[in-house]
Design a protein around this nucleic acid. Structure first.
Lengths: 252, 252
DNA sequence: TGAATAGTGTCTATCAGACATTATGTC
DNA sequence: GACATAATGTCTGATAGACACTATTCA
């Protein structure tokens, strides 16, 4: 049977129906704290509960990546011009356990976003509120659906990803100091790093950062020389990697 | 509005309909060559073309992981008893570009499987044929849908995963020699490794392998002492990792 | 006997991490 | 002047990789 003939008599209803959503774990640094974008749901199910921003994929009209970017833009107020281009967005994983949504069979494709410090969030169409929330405060929140699980996976991916890619720079503005970069690593890993060793390491890894020649305006905090400014380098993978301090070697 | 009331009047038809499939990139070593399980499609679309094994997820009846295990079992003839338990199965990524399936909007959740050398494949219900195919032979095959893309992603994941996890052992039987393990790395990475250094490295990484005390029956190939036998160790992450030989440092 | 293999020893360049030091800012 | 920070220097132990070497088995 030729394909055309088959398609003409084809009955889409014969296949089990799913709804497909995208949900975004959007991370940023606010006041030195690793924070995630959460929305307060305006509608059932889980009305009133905090959840990851997300929504239904428009079948046939957009790719999954585009759907994730669209949902993120709706809640952050960014567009392609203003900043969205600087946000790193990657697929995290897909969650489809039966019963994860009480309405019907829903498969959620989760995305992970790294964003520089952004203006306060905007409540999108179907959200009552939207807020950047320090991830340390999330455990008390009882997120909707399986979003706590998705967030945990996203955090672990983020911790691992900044080890061997230069994506920590995606949390910063275009120009940054080594100290600011160190603050990113410390916030994501939740561990203090040795300033001197970190400095030397960052400059020694090929392609992680490149110098701008300029120095920061005023030394922000409590004195010290003005720090030099760097841009993100052109590496896509770090070699050697910046390994996080020993997390119980090997994880048996 | 309470959730129950909402659910009662809820109309699933209001949401864009998707079909959800799982597709499996199942890798194994056959005669020293890294090989992937392919099926020849019996029905349109792409009837007669080779494709990754997969099928529709049964909505509400199984998790995505279970659906992937079911599809893999159908094509390999394995069940929980006979070997399926030793197969490593992990989610690879999700593919949902509009038009990737000519019939309707289909989202495919791809899985990656590492299997020990298995008996010849079995054609499942909707496949005309099933075969373990050396990945080196695949480029000439014009796989159905976007399966060439999915396979490429799976291979890259596999190459990367054996660096920092002990999953290379999933390609071998319960007991194996260091040389057999080296053959896995060489097949997956497509590079020759230094036998002596590899040997010392494998034994020095905590939790990668543990000794059985036994030695192999006969030195299989062209002489040499009988090799000692090892089991997979209890590590879930390797530290330090086994880095693959320099792939153009950093990938700019 | 010859050849290939298993396993170990040695050397060197590199790297992570601990620690120290100097210069430069703020309060 | 007290103090924190930026940046660099020094040292040590671990590691990757090159190479050499011995012992063991098959043909």
């Amino acid at each position: 049977m030729p394909d055309e003939e088959f398609l003409a008599q084809y009955d889409p209803g014969a296949y089990p129906p799913f709804a497909v959503t995208v949900d975004v774990v959007a991370l940023t640094l606010r006041d030195g704290a690793l924070s995630v974008l959460l929305v307060r749901r305006g509608e059932a199910p889980f009305a009133g509960a905090w959840a990851l921003p997300g929504g239904f994929v428009q079948a046939g009209a957009e790719t999954l990546d585009e759907a994730a970017a669209r949902e993120l833009a709706e809640e952050t107020g960014l567009d392609e011009e203003r900043g969205l281009g600087r946000v790193h967005l990657e697929q995290l994983g897909t969650y489809g356990d039966p019963g994860r949504d009480p309405r019907m069979a829903v498969v959620s494709v989760a995305y992970l976003a790294f964003a520089p410090d952004l203006p306060e969030a905007l409540a999108g169409s179907d959200a009552a509120d939207a807020r950047w929330t320090p991830v340390a405060d999330v455990p008390g929140l009882a997120l909707a659906f399986d979003h706590a699980h998705i967030l945990a996976d996203g955090l672990e991916r983020a911790r691992s990803k900044i080890e061997y890619t230069p994506l920590a720079t995606a949390f910063l503005r275009k120009e940054f100091t080594v100290s600011e970069l160190r603050a990113v690593y410390e916030a994501v890993w939740g561990a203090e790093l040795h300033a001197g060793n970190f400095h030397r390491k960052v400059l020694s890894v090929p392609g992680l950062v490149e110098s701008t020649g300029a120095t920061a305006e005023h030394s922000s905090t409590r004195g010290g020389p003005r720090a030099r400014l760097y841009r993100a380098g052109d590496a896509r993978l770090l070699h050697p990697a910046l390994l996080r301090p020993d997390r119980e070697d090997g994880v048996r």
